[in-house]
Design a protein around this nucleic acid. Sequence first.
DNA 1: GCACAAAGTGTAAAGGTTTGCAATAGGCAT
DNA 2: ATGCCTATTGCAAACCTTTACACTTTGTGC
Lengths: 360, 360
Amino acid sequence: MLDSRLTIIDIAREAGVSSATVSRVLSKHPNVSALTASRVRAVVDKYGYQPNSIARGLQQRQSHVLGIIMPDIKHPYYAGIFSAAQREAEGAGSVVQLYRLEYNGSVTEEFIRRLIERRLDGTLLTGGFIESPNARELPIVLDRLRQYMPIVTIGPEIPGFECARVWPDLPNGVRRAVDLLAELGHKRIAFIGATTDTRSVGEREQGFREGCERLGIEAILYNESIHNPAKGEESAVRLLDGLPRNRWPTAVMVINDLMALGVLKGLRTLGLTVPDDMAVVGCDNQFFSAFTDPPLTTLNLNAEELGRLAMRQLIGGTGDLSVNAPEPIVVDPGLIIRESCGTRRRMAQMLAAEPALEAV
Amino acid sequence: MLDSRLTIIDIAREAGVSSATVSRVLSKHPNVSALTASRVRAVVDKYGYQPNSIARGLQQRQSHVLGIIMPDIKHPYYAGIFSAAQREAEGAGSVVQLYRLEYNGSVTEEFIRRLIERRLDGTLLTGGFIESPNARELPIVLDRLRQYMPIVTIGPEIPGFECARVWPDLPNGVRRAVDLLAELGHKRIAFIGATTDTRSVGEREQGFREGCERLGIEAILYNESIHNPAKGEESAVRLLDGLPRNRWPTAVMVINDLMALGVLKGLRTLGLTVPDDMAVVGCDNQFFSAFTDPPLTTLNLNAEELGRLAMRQLIGGTGDLSVNAPEPIVVDPGLIIRESCGTRRRMAQMLAAEPALEAV
DNA sequence: GCACAAAGTGTAAAGGTTTGCAATAGGCAT
DNA sequence: ATGCCTATTGCAAACCTTTACACTTTGTGC
């Protein structure tokens, strides 16, 4: 770890100029003669000198580092956001740091302390913790954070805290899925995975209720706050076991694809065929969803689009305190129609009628 | 963004002490009286002062930032590594930054420049780009990077570059899977997804060959360098189409679970039943793998374990240039036996015989 | 009372850049 | 020649901490 100690002053001395000049050469400042520039660059190359971005950060009072707060990078939804956000930041010459905050965690003073300390240029915030309906002190803590850096969130509005925001319009997406099922002739639809824990789940449920109500469809809500395959399997079985045969739904919407995977398995063990005995619609469009048996109709939340747009806002300075919170950017989930929801023929008709639907 | 300008000197003035004392209070230096400490802390709290870690980093010549270089955070394997590494770093008071480097990218001067500039405390390196057999200049570039910071890699050895390393022992894992298939009576096994692109694939293939050879099993290699579900489906069909019925394998190993998902689908469309007509074994143990139809027998690469161990090395300073490269830490992939490889009865016997096998 | 140690605190330098301002030099019109 | 303008460069302060060193108190053992 030798030449890491090489400073701009060493380069300046060697090139016979002042450190100011070297700095100007390196940051492509116009006011420097071509001759000097080339001489400086030669010395820089000769020693392989790399400017110290920490010192630069101190001087410029910006770190070119952006923080991303999310619960679980292993979840493909968050991974998609993170990936796209990182790419966007990279394009702007910045780098991203991940700050993990568990699903059920809360944004404490101590937590934001870590962010402030780092003097980040901004923070992108997403995950269940900003959706908890009983996070009373959340707006206060976030206000404090905002004194130090711009904030952009991905998700539903945080009551009492206005900021730049990108919003996946889940109510609309789910409503659209309900529309599809109605078109396919379903009159009684179940919703698996309802919970009051987080608002983005609440939004799906809300979209479901509204969609059903509007079309006069009987809505059956099945509560389950853990949304994994195992619980999906269990839920499917319990839901149907708990109903007399003549009250069974003919279609189920599942809160996410992971859980839908389990639902498919549960239905299979009950001897039901999807979609003939029961249509299934998921939510998330995970990469395995096109390869379930049968392939899963689902909502595409456009995680990468969300991440890209949010990061773009952050970099563009829209998250700045001094600017009034702009209207949220709405990202409409696309409905991805595969086989789990009904016949190919019907699909083809739908696609012809509404080109907005995506088929994959 | 007001009080972000508050410095340690302001606090010192307000508390009637010197900045040195404030610094000592904040970094819990012992030589400071309880009285002074409490007075300083009161002022700190009153103004909500947060030390500037950039200035600290400059002074201490360490950033408490660690870099992670990997191709694709959306891939669950890398997400697992990243997640565990982040957690480990967080525990040590550091933070991680993601530097993306595409699967087929190469570690250029320009790329490491970005890392050096940031004065990271260390780098964790993993992904296909360090496995490319024709990356001639890789050791040179990495040597340069190492002059600035410790490096730990996850994966096979990089020829010509010694460093701390965590290695998922794929040959052994695959060999073990072959053993299992042999035990189950298979005499002809295909391997789908062979390629010469990256060495970690090569390692799997090598393990497969060796395993088969040792047991006198006929090995059929099917080359395909793209490892996604669609290619899996196609590969399964082509493999079997290309062989006379009496030369068909009775089992296939697939390079990863994602591709195996497609293989399952391909076999289904061919009218074959898994595992009765054809046993299938994947590799990765992705979270959907327990919910395919039938559930997939697979190798668990222990991504999180890999990430944790690598980061621990990095933090522990084992990646330091001055230390000779230690023996690599070997992580043995666990064989996860589900239904896609054969009968439950046989499984139970296996499990009883070798407790090292994991069942999920 | 004295020598000495220990504890607590302050001073100032250092860490590596960037940048406002001043200085210099050269070009050009007068 | 003179004065002015512009292009180029250097000087030095500022960014905000940490820490080696020095100094002052206070306490202890004799």
